[in-house]
Amino acid sequence: MPLGRGGRGGGVIACGQNVLDIEGLVLRRGRRLLARRVDLRVDRGAFAYIVGPNGSGKSTLLRVLAGFGRPEEGVIRWSGRTIGEWGGAYRGEVAFLGHLEGIKSMLTPEENLAYRRLLVGPTGWRVPTPSPFFDVSALPDLPCQRLSAGQRRRVSLACLEYSAAPLWLLDEPLTALDHDGIAALGGLLARHLTAGGTAVVASHQPLPPSLVPATVLELGTKR
């Protein structure tokens, strides 16, 4: 099951070696200095686990990796090219799951999937395995406003499941998920990694045992 630029010759390998390399990154939110000289390397098929107290810069780091704003100091390389060199194309490489679900409360789960498909465009969308972990048709066909937090989280994770982006950036993905939801997310992430994708996960809660991070980055102590 190829993961990556479906349009560009199938498999992940075709689009470079999917390695995320961060050197000497300085994290700053407004005037506050959060972290100095963050170094991180995540190889293809592996994921990094970011831990640290609240406000230590976990979310800031993920947002910088997603391309929201350029870091003042430090270099972020994805598949050998810096974000600057990627330019607009970088947006197709990344799937970002933030604190907010990122779904429209007035649309039903199915419509939300269709909406995200339009946003991401044909190359960024792929049909997952026959029985997707987060089957949206199981949810009530109501505007998401009237669904529970857990159900809404499943809709946004379903959008992730259809995403063909090789780099996944997950900020607190386990929130509002029940036990089997967490297991399902673990399976989803595992399948993404075995397909050659890369991921960076920031979370408070312990990860499901099946997921073993390649590297763990501790934020909050300014080296």
Partner: peptide
């Protein structure tokens, strides 16, 4: 902005001006 879909709009490879 409040429901997070603005982030997804900005991450869309489609030109933001059109969206």
């Amino acid at each position: 902005h409040d429901d997070g879909s603005l982030e997804q709009m900005l991450l869309s490879p489609r030109p933001l001006e059109l969206i």
